[in-house]
Computed example of a mutant assay.
Amino acid sequence: MEKMCPFSLLILLALWIFGPNLVNGDAQQPASPPIFILGDSTADVGTNSYIPHCNATANFPHNGIDFVNSRPTGRFSNGLNSADHLARLFGYNSSPPPFLYLHSLKYGLQLGIYRGVNFASGGSGLLDDTGLKLNVLNLPQQINQFVTVRENLITALGHETTKALLAKSLFCITTGSNDIFVYFKTRSTMPKEEFINLLMEAYENHIKTLYSLGAQKFGIISVPPVGCCPANRLLNATRCFEPMNDFARYFHLAIDKLMCKLSSELQGMKYALGDSYKMTMDVIDNPRPFNFKNVDSACCGHGTLNAEGICNATANLCSDRKQYIFWDMFHPTHAAARLAANTLYGGPTLYVSPINFAQLAAEN
C-alpha cells in the first residue's frame, strides 16, 4: 500500500475534523462528538478490504444488497452495521471511515465536518493471536493507527486543542467474540475463569493505553450470545450452543467489574457498557414485539440454517431481510444492528449501564 505523506495526512485529518471552516481560519467544533471505533467485524466498515491478503473480507455480493446501489462495502451486512447506526444517532450522515481508507489517499480531501475514524477489523479479538491466520488487524495494531491520528492532530491543532478534542470524543469498542470462537475451535482446556481473566487483562491494558493517549469516554459493547449464531447452532442440533453462551455471560460479568474498577482508578474516565447478551437474548426469546420472525437461520448462506457456507453471490438469499436477526452465519442484519444501536444510544440501565451512550456523550 502506498503511504500518504505526513503533510497530506495532516491536512486530511484537519479537514475531517473541522471541515472547510478550518481552511478559512474559522475552526468551529461540531455539536456531535468525534467517534473512534475499535473492534471486530460487527463494526468493520471496510478496513479488511484494504489489507493485502486478508482472509476475512465481505467486499462481494450478496453483502451490501441493501446498501446504496446494492454495493458491497466490506461490511458483514446486507446494509449498515452498528457503527453506522450509532453514527447516525449522533447526527452524522455517514459513518466514520476506515483509517486505511484515509491512509490510502494521496492528497488531502475536503471531507466535511468531523466524525471520527474507524479502526475495527473483522476477525480480530482481544488477544494478539486471535485472527492472526486471517491476516487482520488486532487491537494493538488498531491502537497504533489511532496513535498516528493523534500525532497528526497534535501537529495540526496543537497539544491542548487535541487533548480537549479527545477528552470529549467517544471511543467505542466491540470485541471478545472471536477470542471465544477460537477457544472452542482449538478445543482449549484452559478453565473458563482463567481464560476470561486473560481476556480482561488484555482489555484492561488496551483501555489504559487509550486513556494514556487522551481517551476518557468509553462505549463498551460486551459479547452477545455467540452460541446462538447460526453457525454455532449447528454444534447443537440447531439449538443455541450453551457452553459458548456461558462464556459470553461470564464475559459480561467480568467486563462490568473491570469497567467499574477502572472508572474509580482513572481520573476523568467515564463509560457506558452495553449488555449485548441480554439485548440479543430478549429478542431471540420473544422476537415478535421487535418485528422479527426468524431468529435462528442466516438470511444469506448455504446448507442447514444457511450456516454451512459464507454469504456470497451463489448463496441462498432470504426475501424479507427485515424479519431476520442474522444476515450470515455470524453477523446481524441491518435491522438487528439498528435495534442494537438504538438500545445502546438511548436504552435503559437494563441493557446499558451505568449510563447509555447518549448520556455518555453529554457528560462533561
Rank of each mutant, 00 (worst) to 15 (best):
T186D: 13
A120N: 11
D256Q: 11
L166C: 03
T343D: 00
E2S: 03
P33K: 06
M281C: 05
S263Y: 11
S353G: 08
F7L: 14
L166W: 01
N312E: 08
V23K: 10
R187T: 12
L13N: 08
L266S: 10
E160K: 10
G116K: 00
D179N: 03
G274F: 01
V283Y: 10
L15C: 11
I65P: 02
H53A: 07
F171N: 00
H331F: 01
R338W: 01
C54Y: 04
G268P: 03
A31D: 12
P224R: 02
D275S: 09
A14C: 10
G64Y: 14
D129N: 09
D128R: 11
L360K: 00
N78R: 12
V147E: 15
S169K: 03
L317V: 15
A315Q: 05
F99E: 09
D84C: 11
H334Q: 12
F292K: 10
E151F: 01
G176A: 10
D320H: 13
G74T: 04
P72R: 01
N24A: 13
M4Y: 11
P20G: 12
R71F: 12
L213T: 13
K208V: 14
D66G: 05
L273G: 02
A341P: 03
A156C: 13
S41L: 03
L38N: 00
H252Y: 15
N59P: 02
S49I: 00
N118A: 08
Y114R: 15
C299F: 02
I207S: 04
Y277K: 15
G176L: 00
T333P: 05
L9K: 08
L89K: 10
L9A: 08
A120D: 05
L126T: 14
N316M: 06
L157Y: 07
R150M: 01
T73S: 12
I143Y: 00
D296W: 06
S177A: 14
Y183K: 02
S70C: 10
S263I: 02
Y107E: 09
A315N: 05
P354C: 15
V283C: 08
G19I: 11
H85L: 13
F7S: 11
T162E: 03
Y183I: 01
P98L: 14
I325D: 01
L258Q: 00
F18I: 11
L132S: 09
F218P: 01
P61K: 08
D179Q: 04
A58T: 04
G268Q: 05
N232C: 02
N59R: 05
N59F: 08
I143V: 12
G74D: 08
Y203S: 08
N48M: 06
R71K: 06
D328K: 03
F184R: 03
G46N: 08
V352T: 14
G176Q: 03
F119W: 08
A337G: 04
N306A: 05
L38T: 09
S212D: 10
S188N: 07
N144E: 14
S70M: 06
V223D: 04
V352R: 14
L339Y: 04
S264F: 06
S319T: 15
I37C: 02
Y50S: 03
F357R: 00
N236E: 05
S77A: 13
P34A: 12
M281D: 06
P354V: 11
